[in-house]
Nucleic acid binder design. Structure first.
Lengths: 231, 231
DNA sequence: GTCTATAGTTCGATAGAC
DNA sequence: GTCTATCGAACTATAGAC
């Protein structure tokens, strides 16, 4: 019977790569690619094994089954990403008088930078996040709750702190809507280029992020003036 | 060999329900439910047949294969929805001096009203749209291009017309971001309620739409002032 | 840890009766 | 148009050698 214990999130003072066989990492990388391309149901353990260059049985040895492999893959990257996000947010708030623009930047940039550069294969993890975040599937909901709700609450708190006129309720709506905007950036379907005859390039991260920050901050501040919190 | 011809989009002066057997409609309704729950790959023809109360072979008789069934299901609802959206948009523009708020309302309301009420089973179609819109899968991209790009261009044109300071490029970004916000509403994952301890209810369409219109218009106008078009 | 081989299930699609 | 029955392929997972 396989171990399939979930890797603990690496702490700041821990070695970069956990002490597991390199095959194990190759499997996670392959899983990221294949799940990103085909979704959970559409991906097959066979293709993941072939992509990783290992026998199919080895995946079961390391991760037990498809569900647990999927969760291990989420756990690995979300740990990296959300540690960076939390650190950046804390630094902004500790410095006092943080601008909303900086908080929104801290909300999005780590996700695309890790999702884009760390996964050597490209932006696979971002795509998996997009599909999980929009899914009503019980597994996706549980993973979102486990790996993303805690950091979401931190950012909602930050919204309320920076814009005291925002009620808690509107801060949560603002957060949900903003994450929705971020999806556009992470999904990278190429549709923006199609609709704009090439003017908008969703592979240009910096350009897109600049536009997104403007749009998202404008949206949040509009909620503020439309219905200011009177407490 | 089965027919599997795609149903033509009903014109305004055409009878409501096409002259196909009621079983055929039952199959499309069932497909909507099952595809919404499990996605394309996760759904099985067996479950769709059981949900529709017909033999599995009948689906192949009417729609040939799984791919074509999926497209027929998209074609049916997108026709209904986008006819309403185009009509409302044209009426707003013909009346002159349309408000951005009204255009954004015309962008979203028909989708949720049709997706929510017409599909007796609930909001299945909305969920399918969300997953298709965010997918890099070739099939999903082709369907989005075929059934949603034309109406998207109309709304982008409207953005440019109403806010002349908006460049074409920013209008496309604004459209993409706004659709992203709309996803929050259509996906209805229940996450907003979880993050707000029940304050935000994503089953309350009117409340959510009101907040979304405020946020989206604020976002679009922020792009305008941040980088006005000088033509 | 890693492999080959395969058991056991489920799937999409088809054949053919009515 | 609608059904029953079934084929052949693909899938997840396991057994067992090394």
């Amino acid at each position: 019977m396989a171990r399939a214990r979930l890797q603990a999130r690496p702490q700041a003072d821990t070695v970069r790569e956990p002490a597991v066989g390199s095959r194990s990492v190759a499997i996670l990388d392959a899983a990221e690619k294949v799940f990103a391309k085909s979704g959970f149901a559409g991906a097959s353990m066979r293709e993941i094994a072939e992509t990783a260059g290992v026998a199919q049985a080895l995946i079961h040895y390391h991760f037990d089954n498809k569900e647990k492999l999927f969760e291990a893959m989420i756990a690995r990257r979300s740990g990296e990403i959300n540690d960076v996000r939390a650190t950046q947010l804390d630094r902004l708030l500790a410095a006092g008088r943080a601008r909303l623009e900086d908080v929104v930047e801290a909300l999005f940039r780590p996700t695309i930078e890790v999702g884009h550069s760390l996964a050597r294969g490209g932006d696979g993890f971002s795509r998996i996040l997009v599909s999980a975040a929009n899914s009503v599937d019980e597994r996706d909901a549980r993973l979102t709750e486990t790996y993303y709700d805690p950091i979401a609450r931190k950012f909602i708190d930050a919204f309320c702190l920076i814009e005291p006129g925002l009620s808690r309720k509107e801060a949560v709506w603002a957060y949900m809507f903003s994450i929705g905007v971020g999806m556009t950036m992470m999904a990278r379907t190429g549709r923006s280029a199609r609709l704009s005859d090439g003017l908008c390039d969703d592979t240009d991260i910096d350009e897109m992020l600049r536009e997104i920050v403007i749009y998202v901050c404008g949206g949040i501040r509009a909620m503020l003036t439309a219905n200011p919190n009177r407490d």
